[in-house]
Design a protein around this nucleic acid. Structure first.
Lengths: 201, 201
DNA sequence: CGGGCTTTATAATGATCGTTAGATATAAAT
DNA sequence: ATTTATATCTAACGATCATTATAAAGCCCG
């Protein structure tokens, strides 16, 4: 059983390697333009061999994109739990920094999810939509706490605010400038823009 | 020559029809997953016939995505010119409303551009990038005017602010909720968030 | 009515797609 | 040493891809 465990770990390592490299391809080329042969080549394998690890292209893609949500959600939840006692605005700022950091510095899973979501087959998209909703609930809750605590003005629509924050964060994937600031610096600026308002210096 | 003009107009009408319907497909399915046969079917034609109007798939896609930038840029520039004398913040608000309205209510060109940009062939993407830069220059200028006029705090990084605004606007494509507000109402809320800051009611 | 454009359809090309079955290699277990 | 399990390769399947050359149809003009 010792050996069996090691085997299973080895299998998982390969699985993860395939997902890592496929995620990169999905970010760069998209769902429809990335072929199983592209993926196999990036993994130093032949296309048919991938079927030992995944049921097919769609299963592989879905696993990657689901992991994209999970990674961000886990990171953000972890950071928020460690800061459970802080005031709402500070926790929001933390959530923004972790969201951006996971997207840019950790891996390509989150980016692959964002980049490919709209064009992935409908059944997959539907399942991913439910996962997204689970993650977005964190933000809904965060913003609601801030509002009921008086840190957000009463006339602000939280639904709009949530999408505004997520939108500006996810759009950073389009920046692609090597000169851009680090994720937590960008989080600071975004927080300033949305919460202080750019009028007030 | 009268007739020739009419003929050319007719040809352009078909060209435009093809672009219209293809734009829709690009929004829904993406670049790689939309085949020329899908396009032809949506146009009540056969795939080969499309080559009379376009050099090929890539030329068609590029024409659509280029038009996506042009439509938004033209609409925004037009609205800004008609408001040239107003104060910077009011013009920014107008630009946001027009950008959102063009994206959501006018056609699918802007959406197709945003949705497919990352996954289109590199040469096309490079040319589109230059067009985007031309449009983004409007925002850079707008924000700079506001800042030098004192309407934006000195410590705000305009590069970040520009991408934040564009990001929250373009991300509205992912909302897809029938219950969402009209574009100019959303523009109002976005303006409030970014410029008043959500803390101040 | 017939000749010359314009526009679309036909049909085939070679390439590439996701997927599968079976052979082969590697290494662990008995 | 032989069997067993794991992992990859080989080689092909049929479907579909963008593209092309050519034929046919539609339509204006004389």
């Amino acid at each position: 059983m010792e050996a069996r465990k090691k085997d299973e770990r080895l299998r998982d390592v390969t699985r993860r390697m395939i997902m890592d490299r496929t995620a990169r391809l999905l970010v760069e080329k998209g769902y429809g333009t990335t072929s199983l042969r592209d993926i196999a080549q990036a993994c130093d394998m032949k296309a048919g061999s991938l079927y030992y690890h995944f049921e097919g292209k769609d299963a592989l893609v879905e696993a990657i994109m689901a992991r994209g949500v999970t990674l961000v959600e886990t990171a953000v939840r972890g950071a928020l739990d460690a800061q459970a006692a802080d005031e709402p605005l500070a926790r929001i700022k933390t959530a923004m920094a972790v969201h951006l950091e996971t997207l840019h510095d950790r891996s390509d899973y989150g980016s692959a999810h964002i980049r490919c979501f709209a064009h992935v087959p409908p059944e997959i998209r539907q399942r991913l939509r439910e996962m997204r909703a689970g993650y977005e609930a964190i933000w809904t809750e965060l913003l609601q706490e801030a509002k009921s605590g008086g840190a957000i003005a009463q006339d602000i629509d939280l639904h709009t605010l949530k999408f505004a924050l997520i939108g500006m964060m996810n759009w950073t994937l389009e920046w692609r400038l090597p000169s851009d600031a680090a994720p937590d610096e960008i989080a600071d600026r975004f927080f300033c823009i949305a919460f202080e308002g750019v009028r007030h210096g």
